[in-house]
Design a protein around this nucleic acid. Structure first.
Lengths: 464, 464
DNA sequence: GGGTATTTGTCCGTATGTATG
DNA sequence: TCATACATACGGACAAATACC
């Protein structure tokens, strides 16, 4: 982009000529690339076409550019290295970090899903249908809290699967759990100055709360999850929990503890933020009612479609207690929704037509098979040399070794053998509790037939 | 048949333009009928094809004809008979709002775009291609700050069009300007407790700042935008401005004021948040350098694709000063991106393949046409009884009436006549400055052929 | 119904004339 | 007279829409 100054003494065409010359010499305008046409540039800069033409002529006569008849002006292939290197072109490249990835044969990354199992073609088909069907609405700004049709589907889904009772006004659709956190912080700020979280727990939640100026109180876990007794002695008037599958320990909060938590909330007039991110992925164990279903008035219930459906789709939802709905709208009325309209509509039809239902059933079955295979193979290969934590739910397990080897060493050795496993230490606040060696193994993206080989490689790497 | 006179001192293309216009207005050339192609007519009249083209362009820009790519020029469906319609307004003052809405014939809503002009099929085509091409990546969690390929395209675009120099590490892609606000607040909180905003200004920015606990200082505008002298006497260490087209007044901040602002920032070690949301939509006026290009180290530059491309796509970007990049990553590392992967990739290819470039050019031309038609028609109908503010840029104008009638009355009367115009008062903090009657008219979603009729209805409603 | 030739809008550089200091 | 900036008019190159085979 070139900027000209009318009041300047130097003529317009000279200013333009100089600026283009600079761009060529600095390397920003690459050899053989095309300059904008005289018409276009004259229109952009709101000057006459002939003025542009004069600048181009000067560049032409000095050999910086050539003209191709009825085609355009092009930068000459100058040898810039001859010139004194005064101005260095700003870097536009960054290094693509992970080249070594090629050595990795088996990656137990947490969070990803096996792309071959995703309902891509179904999604695409519905997406195309929605483009046609909602053509006339694509020019509109779509507002918070999200499309009514999608919210209706979410209400139905929550009622049928999670025993969560709510109406569409309580549902807010957002682009991921982090967006929901931002909204929650703005909502509760008035009433809450201290918020309790699980320790260890989901670091992003903690960060967001802190960034909003909330005082964070980490509460240690016991066998049943967050310890409510310890919660009682804090000033916290809100708590963030992941009861359906505590991240990262995998603890599933039993009904008794859930009731304790509700009692605490009632007594202290507090709020429970229930992150139900992994509610479905439950293997070999019985369902437990959501906290929201135990106390609708004191719970913000969070959920997401990213864990099972494409993570890349980025749709999450929250269920507000009725008393917060008015406050929500008083703050966010007329704010645009952060979720693209076409994605909301596609998801809505995906659910309406039953794809979502059949897909989660299939996914649970597939993930259970992989979970069972992984746990079983690890048992077989390592026996009682390891303890497997966080099993029977979710998309990862935690392997804790009983010999003396730290996390770093475990990860490094596995890496050299071509297997990628992940640390657990980042999840702790105070780093004491993880000094024994433990690593996290996600199985969402792994293929079941790779599991035995990967575990054998691990055994060789760790016990050699 | 048209007759041109070479010796006449009126240009050939003007003669041709006038004669065709006559034919249209007299009804000899019927709506929807096709004009002769430029080749044919140039051959018949023995003039250059471009001369014909110029005449057609003028007719096009005045709304008499439309062009269908590679198909021909066609007469617009103008309403030649100025029908003295009796307004069917009910005598009763009780208004059933929902029913009345059906009576709205012309809606000058701000923000929306005409869906028929959107590149829906191109977008869809590229989207489908991306689904195939990136199949294996759809199972992954995609992280902040967004896809590298997309960020590279944004860097190029900013360099070529906005004179913004930056590298890919400084670009953060987010799902709309509001998401960017959330990030900014978390970034600057450490250094900034007071933030200045424009008064009147963009209400959502103000709300978000306040929700984060920042002290907001509204600064009145003068003819050149935000008054830097008044800024100097505040404690603010950050300022939020919309210099390319102040919302809602439409003031375009001149270069002198931009430099003043930079000076203020340098002296007081402060930060400028430059919301460049409407940089392209500039009609009949010359470009002005972005503030970021004047002081890269003190400016967070914000932009969005929603103003021109589908609002429903929800992609915005911000350019951080280098000194904030590290802090950003220390806070948000490993956070997922809030923009769906497939949309990022589609946008990336949309830009790489030149669709974005040609689309914004087309959009600017279309919007300019509507802008000029609206301003011209209002001038013709109301003359000096009104003042048109906020013109020559953006997607709305503000009409201020010189007779004694308040905003509410103007809106109500227009509404009854079937025309929806919008208030300006909500944008002011203290409600004193708008007590004269003024309304906002967005033209983004209106169709050009509706403008004359809508303005005539307004005239009848307001001057009756 | 699918490939091909033609038509068409659009974009391109170029040349000359004119107005204003 | 000259430099600067703009207006008018020209014919060719290109790709997409359309008509035709």
């Amino acid at each position: 982009m070139f900027l000209l100054n009318n009041k300047n003494n130097t003529p317009l065409y000279t200013q333009l000529y100089k600026q283009i010359k600079e761009e060529i010499l600095s390397g920003n305008l690459k050899p053989f690339s095309k300059l904008p046409s005289s018409r276009r540039l004259s229109n952009d800069l709101q000057i006459s076409r002939n003025t542009v033409e004069m600048a181009y002529q000067q560049l032409y006569s000095e050999g910086y550019i050539t003209s191709k008849q009825r085609s355009g002006y092009f930068i000459e292939n100058l040898d810039l290295s001859i010139l004194p290197q005064e101005s260095i072109a700003p870097k536009t490249e960054t290094i693509d970090v992970i080249k070594e990835c090629e050595n990795i044969k088996y990656d137990f990354q947490y969070g990803n899903l096996d792309p071959t199992k995703l309902p891509i073609s179904e999604w695409q088909k519905i997406s195309n249908k929605c483009f046609r069907q909602y053509k006339s609405e694509l020019g509109k700004y779509n507002l918070i809290p999200g499309e009514l049709g999608l919210r209706k589907e979410i209400v139905k889904y929550l009622r049928d699967y999670r025993d969560v009772r709510c109406n569409v006004d309580q549902i807010i659709v957002e682009s991921g759990i982090h967006s929901s956190f931002n909204i929650i912080c703005q909502l509760i700020k008035k009433d809450v100055s201290d918020i309790a979280i699980e320790e260890p727990g989901f670091f992003a939640a903690r960060n967001t709360f802190e960034n909003y100026g909330l005082e964070v109180c980490p509460i240690e876990l016991d066998r049943c999850g967050l310890n409510v007794k310890k919660l009682n002695v804090t000033k916290a008037r809100a708590v963030y929990v992941t009861p359906s599958y505590q991240f990262p320990t995998g603890i599933i909060m039993p009904i008794s503890r859930r009731l304790e938590l509700v009692e605490w909330a009632n007594k202290s007039d507090s709020l429970i933020i229930e992150d139900d991110y992994s509610c479905h992925l439950r293997y070999n164990i019985k369902p437990i009612p959501s906290i929201q279903s135990l106390s609708g008035e004191r719970v913000i219930h969070l959920g997401s479609f990213s864990k099972y459906l494409f993570p890349s789709i980025r749709v999450s939802y929250m269920v507000l207690p009725e008393k917060l709905v008015n406050r929500f709208y008083s703050i966010f009325e007329n704010f645009p929704s952060s979720v693209p309209f076409i994605i909301q509509k596609t998801l809505q039809h995906f659910m309406e037509e039953g794809y979502w239902d059949s897909y989660i059933r299939k996914t649970i079955r597939d993930q259970k098979r992989k979970h069972d295979a992984l746990v079983h193979t690890l048992d077989k290969e390592f026996g009682d040399k390891i303890t497997i934590l966080a099993k029977n739910a979710g998309l990862h397990i935690v392997v804790q070794v009983k010999w003396n080897m730290k996390e770093d060493e475990l990860i490094k050795r596995a890496y050299k053998a071509g297997v990628k496993v992940y640390p657990t230490s980042v999840l702790w606040d105070c780093k004491k509790s993880h000094e024994h060696g433990a690593v996290m193994m996600g199985f969402g993206a792994i293929q079941i037939e790779h599991i035995p080989k990967a575990v054998k490689l691990l055994k060789k790497a760790w016990l050699a």
